[in-house]
Amino acid sequence: MKKAFIKKSRTVYFVFGIGLLIGLAVLVMYLPDPGRSQEEVVSPYITRLRERVRTGYQEGYEVKPRMSVGYDLMKGGYYEGNEVRPIKRTRDEFKAPGVLRDLFPVSSTGAEVRIRSHLPDAHAGIKFYQQSTCTECHSRQARSFHTDRAGINCRQCHGAEPIPAIKHYYSPMNPIRRHAYVCATCHEGANDLFAQYIIHEPAPGALTTKESFPVFFYANWFMVLLLLGTMAFFIPHSLMMFLQELAMKKGKTGIDILFPLIPHRFKATLRKRFPKKKAPEK
């Protein structure tokens, strides 16, 4: 009997052990590559890298613009040979059609914003740009732990004028090198995976977050519902228990103390149906 039990438990342990190993192997397969802190990267995910090699498809920010010369961010112009030329004279990689011609600068489809996010100067051609502040237009981006807690302002990460768009190939904010050029200025040793932290977090409860960051959305609502559910059950429960205890002490049934507003006749029928109990003897 005892031996059989031991034998059985051993097989159970064995099966569990093998299962655990298989689970770990699957987990390791789906984890991204270890992050690199000083290199340029395209994508930290192995699967996505493979897909890129297979299809030959690459995002705009991963491809150098069509020019054989370097781009000096600090001076705000291109080098052509030894000569520095201002941005306006060179052809932009993408043109922003119809920028700020209408009353509302952002189109309904967001196409202009997407195109703007590839420009060497993200705010090129915006009227009254000098007179406005960042959060007047980027109101959603005002939500940031770095601003709330550490008191960091926009320019400390996004740089001085002209502010390059985050997806322009040579921008320090480009995901290819963001970790080394921006994050690592404070977080020493930051790698590409670390740079995937979402600085301008969306509002976790908002429905738009369901599309942009579903894990965040569901985690938030799970916790909120858990909190509300616990409180909604236990607060009335404990109050009722307290009242019940008071009622018991006075030798009444629950009906008298909990439902003082019930009409007299209904109360009488209730009492007939559920006769009064004697107070516990002491």
Partner: peptide, 19 residues
Amino acid sequence: PLLICSVVPGWTLNVAALL
């Protein structure tokens, strides 16, 4: 955060902070 992010992507820290 830096040690953890050598294995998992940074947005898990967003979720971790929220939780």
